[in-house]
């Protein structure tokens, strides 16, 4: 079997496994924890498309996430849109914002892009706080439709439905989306586009003079990254059934999105996945056993520790360990 076939078999296998889990596992805590870790993983993968492959730091992951969430709320309020439409809108809206931010600042040095993304986070939070139509500072509640159907199939219900409840459905949706994101990242790494990004990360001026359209590649990468964050945000309000600006634009989201790849390793998609799964699990345990402040402290300390002492993350450490074994 080629490595490609093997990879895609595993992806399909995991998707099937995720569906079986929703049918067989009863304890709802596992879906809660799983959802949290998946969300971390997808945000980390999305951050890494720009941070890892191109070397541009995005501090505003929470802005793209939160704007996605609120775009979903808006179409739900205004058009009474269904879940699927909401998620698509979320992704598209964040993609547009990402493209605009990039177009304004990606001509400048990378640090200015970083600072601008942070600025974007505060501006979007302020806008939403002051916009009462989507709930303003008080937040908004989401009432999921009862017994939704697609093509005559009952999606969520107590009996004869695909999923027992909404949490399981959304867990599955996020699972599929996570797997798709992994596939996207892997495709980028192996494409002409990905090689161009790598060249521009190594040396932007040299890449440009070797025919690589650096600005366009940066803009495409930013747009893809922002849209994935937007999709993830679009699922979030439905899952929580309540949303307010404080939680949707929380800086913790930005910190996690950046910390997971830097801890796991930024070179390939495997780094963010490893970082998110290991650290996400650790965070879940710390939150349950100690406190949620401690889990944030853990992320901060890991982040600083890794960037100083293990700049290539878990992936780098594994490689070093293997080389020593030879």
């Amino acid at each position: 079997m080629t490595s490609n076939n093997k990879f895609y078999s595993i992806i399909v296998g995991l998707a099937v496994l995720a569906y079986l889990a929703t049918a067989l596992v009863d304890n709802q805590y596992y879906f809660f924890a799983g959802f949290a870790i998946l969300q971390l993983m997808i945000m980390a993968l999305a951050w890494n498309i720009l941070g890892g492959y191109v070397g541009y730091v995005n501090f505003g992951s929470a802005a793209f996430f939160g704007l996605g969430a609120y775009a979903a709320i808006f179409v739900m309020e205004y058009f009474k849109a269904d879940l699927f439409t909401q998620i698509i809108t979320a992704g598209c809206f964040s993609a547009i914002v990402g493209l605009a931010t990039g177009a304004l600042t990606l001509r400048l040095r990378g640090v200015y892009f970083a600072i601008a993304t942070l600025a974007l986070l505060v501006v979007s939070e302020t806008l939403i706080l002051n916009w009462d139509y989507v709930g303003g500072a008080a937040g908004a509640y989401i009432l999921p439709k009862r017994n939704p159907t697609v093509l005559g199939l009952l999606i969520v219900g107590k009996e004869n439905a695909l999923f027992g409840n909404y949490k399981e459905l959304l867990f599955f949706v996020l699972c599929i989306f996570g797997l798709v994101t992994i596939v996207i990242c892997r495709l980028i790494e192996r494409s002409k586009f990905g090689r161009g990004l790598e060249a521009l990360r190594d040396n932007e001026q040299a890449a440009e003079s070797m025919g690589v359209p650096t600005l366009r590649l940066k803009l495409i990468a930013t747009t893809i990254s922002a849209s994935i964050m937007g999709f993830t945000g679009g699922v979030f309000p439905y899952y929580m059934t309540f949303i307010d600006p404080i939680s949707a634009f929380n800086l913790d989201i930005s910190v996690n999105a950046l910390a997971m790849p830097l801890i796991g390793g930024t070179a390939t998609w495997l780094g963010p996945v490893l970082g998110a799964v290991v650290l996400g699990t650790l965070q879940q345990i710390a939150t349950v056993t100690i406190s949620s402040e401690i889990n944030l402290l853990i992320v901060g300390l890991f982040l600083v520790g890794f960037v100083i002492f293990a700049p290539d993350g878990f992936l780098g450490l594994i490689k070093k360990f293997r080389n020593r074994g030879d």
Binding site: D202, Q205, A206, M210, V212
Partner: peptide, 24 residues
Amino acid sequence: FQIPKPFSSMTVKQNLLIPLEYAV
């Protein structure tokens, strides 16, 4: 370039493939 600016995460051959892929 006066100060060499190689693509440092790539091999020598991969360095050459960038212009070949993007400009030729």
